[in-house]
Write a protein that binds this DNA or RNA. Structure first.
Lengths: 207, 207, 207, 207
DNA sequence: TATGAATGAGAATTCATTCAT
DNA sequence: GATGAATGAATTCTCATTCAT
């Protein structure tokens, strides 16, 4: 990288490069965790100079925000395609658990937004989030055969519980063997997988 | 702070001094926000040397953890005293909103724990949290006249929603006037106060 | 240790307690290395309050100095008892290697003295060191059957080389497996055992 | 330092800047002693931001290591140029005494290495040290007209004595006037200048 | 004598972001 | 457009020593 990388002139090329950066970020998070994501490391991984990063993303937090929005759209797209009325809670849980980065990003969303995102990208992200929520709500209405307003209300509660449950997924990094017996449950891995389904069941009235 | 603070030799005196430190921390958070909480600033405010702080609190994160546990105990204690069967959602929301620092601390809980708390104080805190949850659940059973197991299940969902809703309370610091119309709702202050009650109503079946 | 430990009134008792403290220090160094020696840890290990330590030792560095002097006296005492004319280099090396803490303390001697020792204890230590050096020199004269002045000169060179070689014994803590081949020798453990004997041989003319 | 320093983009410019930093460090040591070397102070003196320092030196200890290697190379370069067979001991002593920082850095070498140097720079330094030692040994062979192996053995002993004697040069900071008569010798300044030549003479057999 | 609570100086380092080239 | 050198704020926590009790 001692020369100047080829320039991305066309709109397509720019979009492509942004994708490459997002992808590098995903890899970095997987490999090193969130703390491993430094702009330096990201630049290296994306084969790009540090300064170049800022041509495609205005801040680290905006990057995370973009990553989250994409993950959320993935979740809902798959939900639209795969969900069926019975087994909704299990499906939803699995969907959400299986989509890489969705949970940890959702858990950090508030802190991220709070931190350092410029207005414009924040608004853009919010709009995409709202649109996606609506798609979810619509699908839910169809599945449950309830009126849209009802589905929307249910969605809100569900997303709230999901946001809460996502916090449980933040890896505590403790070795279970060293835990006192009475606390082992509280620190169990896959807390989310255990805690979320009952909530969904309760919220959807599928008891 | 050019003198030596009175020495806390008895157990009582020590407890008192720790309280003073926690109290100074609360003041600091109110005045300057979470980022304003510096060990230096805290020492100054608590009229104590920096090193002394560490005799009472092993790290900044442990401090936040202690602060949260106390806030949670306050909430539940008041819940036990004040809650009545009708108007549960409103009461709960108010309780939780009115208890200083409860919401923002709860929203940051996972991140804090993740960060830098030694095992021992973490376990102690977890135990207090568990015990307090149980007290809540018991009171809920009484209020709703449901069996303990049912109350416990309801508590779990409620706390999950609460944890999710708490995220909404993190101040975004945006001036509402500058927001696009279609997003004004999403950034409203008191998001929590608007978003949580419907969830509680739904979860408790009080529709 | 919540009460007041029994007081060491008599001279004997004081000496005994000082010995206990030195002994605790040796244990601490063995177990945790030099960095593990904090006055707090030492107090705990010696079953004494932190303040009490300072009744027996004026500073941490003075403690190390005392430890060194004792180790050196041990070395020379054993040298007087065990050394014989042939195999001097090997014997000396072994003696010095086998006496616990002698080498690492010697290696740190200059830095320690430089740091923080009051005049009086420093002078006392120096006198003991000089006296011990003389004993060594005398023994050397007998062994080699050379005049005292010659033995003294030899001693000086020997101690100089010893001091230099002692530096080599400071544990580098590197894993030999990860070392480049061309540097493996430079970082070998027991550097001292390999580097010192040839020097002694050369200095004593035992080739 | 309210502006941005000129950017060193070429390899040469970078090398130059590193030299400037090392030079500033030397100045700092002269003026304030080793304890005066603070990364902050160094940055200020080098007219560079603190962070910039770390672009050129990975840690304070690496800085000292670099300083030592350069000093050693200076010594040996001058030795190659100036040494002649007679008066070797005096010449060597003077060379070593006169090269700024060589002695105090050599005395601290082990401690520095032990402390906090990353593998890569450590290995690089070691290699330079080894190469320089060889140059010394070669010159010695020429001067003394002895075979290389013999010269190498002599070098080892010499460096050992040198390392030991270097410890004597660490400034004790005591006022000679306040010293007891019987210890005045032990604390004399220029201890090194008095203690090293006899050793060299003995080792080289120039008696 | 013994205790241990209180002190407080002190410094290294990271990393997001900028902007000269 | 791309680069990567430079920036510099910002904060934690340790631990030897003291001295009130």
């Amino acid at each position: 990288m001692d020369g100047t990388a080829k320039r991305a002139r066309s709109v397509d090329q720019k979009a492509e490069r942004q994708k490459a950066i997002l992808s590098a970020a995903r890899g970095l998070i997987s490999d090193l965790g969130f703390d491993g994501v430094t702009m330096s490391a990201l630049a290296k991984r994306a084969q790009v100079a540090k300064g170049t990063l800022y041509l495609y993303v205005r801040s680290k937090e905006e990057l995370f925000l973009l990553l989250f929005v994409e993950a959320m759209e993935d979740v809902v797209t798959r939900f639209e395609a795969e969900a069926c009325a019975d087994q909704l809670p299990e499906q939803l849980t699995r969907l959400v658990s299986d989509t890489p980065l969705f949970l940890p990003l959702y858990a950090r969303l508030a802190a991220v937004i709070e931190a350092n995102v410029a207005d414009e990208p924040l608004f853009a992200a919010k709009r995409r989030i709202l649109a996606t929520s609506n798609r979810f709500s619509n699908k839910l209405a169809t599945l449950l055969e309830v009126p849209p307003a009802r589905a929307e209300a249910l969605s809100l509660v569900l997303f709230q519980a999901l946001l809460g449950a996502a916090q449980l997924d933040l890896p505590s990094g403790r070795d279970p063997a060293t835990l006192p017996a009475d606390l082992r449950d509280s620190f169990a891995v896959h807390q989310f997988d255990r805690a979320f389904p009952p909530s969904v069941r309760h919220i959807l009235g599928v008891d």
